[in-house]
């Protein structure tokens, strides 16, 4: 038995699995919350990333970074609902190529965000207002945009990709 198979076996029939698939309203409610979460995450992160990438310069930098808790809230909602989706149908998600690439992109976006918080954000207050951000900040902004929109698209395409 592979690792994936044993994880699937462990989840199936467990308490969380039974709750998610147990009544008809749980899945659609989780989907609605997942869409709300993605709106908050993407809405906030797009503004931050476009400012970091230098594509919108009119916004005040310190104001922009204060949008990040909203992105954090969206991410929290989507990790929670996402884990519940996985527990609801582990056999389908674990072998789905679209889902696997999506998770890889989430990790990449996470590493990129960590880089932002450690290296970029502490410097933001020293930048000249209205000027182009440093090259590293622009790279982090573009990487973040690319990875999160990748996550968004692959998530939507899970039913259509790599299900065999």
């Amino acid at each position: 038995m592979t690792v994936i198979e044993s994880v699937v076996n462990w989840i199936e029939g467990g308490v969380i699995n039974s709750w998610v698939v147990g009544s008809a309203w749980v899945w659609p409610t989780l989907e609605i919350l997942h869409f709300v979460g993605l709106s908050l995450l993407l809405g906030a992160i797009v503004v931050v990333d476009l400012r970091m990438a230098g594509l919108i310069r009119s916004l005040e930098l310190t104001a922009v970074t204060r949008l990040l808790p909203l992105a954090g809230l969206g991410f929290l909602i989507n990790v929670t609902t996402g884990v519940l989706f996985f527990f609801g149908d582990p056999a389908r998600y674990s072998v789905n190529v679209g889902f696997q690439i999506k998770m890889l992109l989430v990790v990449l976006a996470g590493v990129n965000a960590l880089w932002f918080f450690m290296k970029i954000e502490p410097q933001v207050q020293h930048w000249t207002p209205g000027s182009a951000p440093p090259l590293t900040a622009r790279l982090v902004g573009v990487t973040s945009l690319a990875t999160w929109f990748g996550v968004l698209l692959l998530g939507r395409l899970i039913p259509y990709i790599g299900t065999g």
């Binding site: 709106s39 809405g43 906030a44 797009v46 503004v47 909203l70 968004l152 939507r156 395409l157």
Partner: peptide
Amino acid sequence: LSMHVTGLALIVGISSV
């Protein structure tokens, strides 16, 4: 569907901000 979820993220996300 991909276009529709991208547009949703922008219109709902930005207007929520």
